[in-house]
Design a protein around this nucleic acid. Sequence first.
DNA 1: CCACCTCCATTACGACTGTAATGTAACAGA
DNA 2: TCTGTTACATTACAGTCGTAATGGAGGTGG
Lengths: 186, 186
Amino acid sequence: MRERWIPDARRNAVADAVGRLLMRGHGTFPGMREIAAEAGVTTGTLQHHFGTKDDLLLFALEHHCRRCADRLRARSEEGARSPRQTLSAIVTELLPLDEERAAETSVAKAFVSRATTDPGFAAHYRAQRKILLDLLGEQFERANTPDPLAAAAILAQAVEGMRTDCLLLGPDAVEVDAVLDRLLVA
Amino acid sequence: MRERWIPDARRNAVADAVGRLLMRGHGTFPGMREIAAEAGVTTGTLQHHFGTKDDLLLFALEHHCRRCADRLRARSEEGARSPRQTLSAIVTELLPLDEERAAETSVAKAFVSRATTDPGFAAHYRAQRKILLDLLGEQFERANTPDPLAAAAILAQAVEGMRTDCLLLGPDAVEVDAVLDRLLVA
DNA sequence: CCACCTCCATTACGACTGTAATGTAACAGA
DNA sequence: TCTGTTACATTACAGTCGTAATGGAGGTGG
């Protein structure tokens, strides 16, 4: 019996499969048949819902960017917390500390190299970066940090390094509090 | 007439070719024939000097790590400069502002994803990171910065973000001085 | 001169790649 | 019930992949 799916659900499931493969696979983009197997479908399904492979990968990037941005906004809007607590929550949300965030981090890393030439992928990097910068800047402003935008930029860049450190060196290699201590001179 | 080469020179030339391809190609590792063409040799030569493709890539990573580390040490040992000037020189040396540094940055980025599973590649990340941390910590110590190792760690992580920002958003997206202002509280 | 070894070029092969082409089941509207 | 469209599955194909295999050219020690 062939299951019928809502197309959007299928696409999201496939995007998740790409994330899982990127997380535990060896860095390079998986092949169509590998993606299909992980998602429990055939390559025909992939061809039907996404035309080409690049479209599929682009959608997967969009998918994970959206999920991550949603969670970042949620952390940012959890009321009644100090700027420092909110900043810590946002930064921690970006670290690959569980399966979902590890997949998102792997996706982000894998697509960086791709973005150097393909403008479609670079646009997502820019967009995701702006979201993060705004959220961080808001908190630095709330904490009366001098030049909050500059502080946000530095933290955003440091987060990039913390993500790869956490991915390659393990969770013990990053200390969020130490970074915030240095940046929050309040 | 077939030219005779010193094997080491060949290997280094091939490693440079990999860097160039990674810089202007679309992120993913180039194929053997592409590498051979860029280096002006045949795949037979590649097979002779490096056994397998992974050996070739690993050597290329080593090659670029070594070159980069040498330049970093050179910047660090240019005497009669303030800690701030030296830090600025070190950080700037890591940004992809010319062909050679752009190639190194592309190499580093491309190998990060690979390093998540392959321990051989991860080892180089660790080593390169330690070199940078030591050089930065030395300068922060010279500048009487409180907790110089923590400051070095933050700067090293921020550099990671600045490299990708510079690569994807252009050289104008990074402001080295702003970062140093915030971190050098002297 | 004769092996011998290094350096390199060519060819070939099997595995794998993305995707086009085709067929089929299930539902929707008329 | 007929028809069309959507959502798959299967097969096939042309191309690329890394690499094994083979052979030749040039330098080197005996």
